[in-house]
Write a protein that binds this DNA or RNA. Structure first.
Lengths: 212, 212
DNA sequence: GTCTATATTTCGATAGAC
DNA sequence: GTCTATCGAAATATAGAC
């Protein structure tokens, strides 16, 4: 039996992901990945097509984990309150965003890569499911008419806050944690259905929200 | 007279900035900059220390222009309304953010670089002046007590919106322009002084807001 | 100050033996 | 499947003549 397998695609992806977070995107080099899994560089090319392919696989892995985490957060919150109201939807959004933020703190490099302007193609399909959940919840808070701009407002705020946080852009002191909660509550209030209008409460099925 | 100057630091920075926007950060190579100003690569090193130095100079140039544009926008709005009220401060903020967004649309690569997590050091000092203006205006709208978290909420939303816009992340159709105005008005309302509290109107002098 | 020429470095990717 | 050996492609930066 010549040359048994000494590594696997999963091990390569895991090592690559760890190196990505430890050293940054540009510092992810094939040589180090090979060292990490205990083989020589050329052996990697039996499992991944090239470096771009490896990055794509890493981001798919990250995205799957993020989706699972946010879904779990929403399910856990829903169990605590069995009503489906604007109030519970707001609670779901708080929980979802908190998990989202926590994930970004744990995976700052991957988060930045996922939300960067030249986002790597291919890792986007799976993100649509999580986005659908978000749009559904926002529709319950903001009403179906304003659901899309309201979701964009909330997601823009959250992404912007987290990005600035990771960039170390909050340099004036103050309590960043408090600023997150301040923003969360104010934005949630801001996107609520305007009180003067009386539309029938209607739960719209939401298409995929790539926006998130 | 041997070898008269054929280029200048300003020309190199201008060419570099143009190439940066046209081709992206990574594609900014010294060879192309040299071609653009009509000299050979080694001649660049008489004016700039290295590539990082050139990028730093480019971002300083961009920051100066952005600061001038936002300052001008606020001054123009103040001329139209000579009162200094929460109402006029809100108008100033709308104008400031509109100019900020327009600048990002015109200089997407530089904007991304300025707001990216691994922000290039050195181009930050000059940004503090513009931030001071923003914090002053937000204090007039939100009240001095909540000025800092309110400013962080507004800036996070704007940065997040613009970043997603530039990334092409708004893929569900709808009117992105309307979403900007929706978010702007809702966030402005959200950060307003909460009505139940009656604090004396007091204009706090604002320290530099690197946050923006 | 500008040039030609080249050193240096780094890294992705492949060929072919085992 | 893994290895040794090596190619090839950038790009930065410098040396030294003019």
């Amino acid at each position: 039996m010549p040359a048994p397998a000494q590594t696997s695609t999963a091990a390569i992806v895991a090592a690559g992901r760890r190196l990505l977070e430890e050293r940054g995107t540009d510092a992810l080099i094939m040589r180090d990945v090979a060292d990490a899994v205990g083989v020589r560089t050329p052996s990697l090319y039996k499992r991944v097509r090239n470096r771009s392919d490896l990055v794509r696989l890493i981001l798919e892995d990250v995205t799957d984990e993020l989706t699972a985490a946010t879904d779990a957060a929403v399910r856990a919150t829903d169990e605590a309150t069995d009503e489906t109201t604007a109030h519970s939807a707001a609670a779901d959004l708080r929980a979802l965003m908190a998990v989202y933020r926590g994930f970004a703190h744990t995976n700052p490099v991957a988060y930045t890569l996922l939300t960067s302007p030249q986002a790597v193609a291919g890792a986007t399909e799976r993100a649509e499911r999580a986005s659908a959940t978000l749009l559904r919840l926002v529709a319950q808070v903001a009403g179906p008419h304003d659901a899309l701009p309201a979701a964009r407002t909330l997601v823009a705020w959250a992404n912007g806050f987290i990005t600035m946080e990771l960039a170390g852009a909050f340099q004036l002191g103050g309590d960043v944690e408090q600023a997150w909660h301040f923003g969360m509550e104010r934005v949630l209030t801001a996107i609520q259905r305007e009180p003067r209008r009386h539309r029938p409460r209607q739960e719209n099925a939401a298409p995929g929200l790539k926006d998130a």
